Simulated scan of single mutants.
Amino acid sequence: MHGEYKMPGGKLVVVDLEVRDGRLAGVQVSGDFFLEPDSALDAINRALEGQPQDADEAALAAAVQRGLGSDVMMYGLSAQAIAIAVRRAVDGDAA
């Protein structure tokens, strides 16, 4: 599954994932945004892995926030934007 979201005034967020047994699997977030440290992208993917397929945007954004350390800086990206891209992937609304 594939979903995209361009954050207003920000960058493109792309999410590719599968759903297995009602849970998000193989989550890969990418796009033209910047993260510091670089390891934050892995933390985002791990935070989304295993989330329920029917989780709403607020729950997904909260999972991303919980998965990130306080030292993470996001440029052109937000947890909410990631959540929107995930929902678009799951709902079949790529853009």
Rank of each mutant, 00 (worst) to 15 (best):
R46S: 07
D38Q: 08
A47D: 02
E49F: 03
E49D: 10
L35V: 14
D42F: 11
Q53N: 08
A58N: 12
D42K: 11
Q53V: 12
L35Y: 06
D42C: 06
Q65E: 15
A62K: 15
Q51V: 00
A58Q: 13
D56Q: 08
A47T: 06
A40E: 04
L60H: 08
D42A: 05
A58D: 08
A55I: 03
A55Y: 09
S39I: 05
G50R: 00
E36R: 14
L41A: 08
Q53A: 12
E57Y: 14
E36F: 14
E36G: 01
A43K: 04
I44Q: 03
L41V: 08
G50M: 01
Q53I: 11
A58W: 07
A55N: 06
Q51H: 03
L60V: 06
L48C: 05
L60I: 11
Q53F: 02
R46W: 10
D42P: 09
L41W: 02
I44T: 01
L41D: 07
Q51K: 04
A55W: 09
R46K: 10
A58C: 10
Q53R: 07
D42Q: 12
A61I: 08
E49P: 11
D56W: 04
D54E: 12
A61H: 15
E36P: 02
A59N: 10
P52I: 03
A61R: 13
G50E: 08
N45M: 05
S39R: 10
N45A: 05
A59I: 04
P37K: 05
V64S: 13
R46M: 10
A58R: 14
L48Y: 03
Q51G: 04
D38M: 08
A43W: 13
D42Y: 11
L60A: 09
A58P: 14
R46G: 03
A61G: 13
D38H: 01
A40L: 10
D54Y: 04
A59M: 10
G50Q: 02
Q51M: 05
D38Y: 05
L41P: 11
P52C: 00
V64W: 15
A61V: 13
Q51D: 01
A40N: 03
E57R: 15
L60E: 01
A43H: 02
D54W: 03
D38K: 08
D42R: 13
V64Q: 15
G50I: 02
D56N: 10
Q53D: 07
S39V: 07
A59R: 07
L60G: 04
P37N: 02
P52Y: 01
A59Y: 10
S39H: 06
Q65R: 15
D42W: 11
L48W: 03
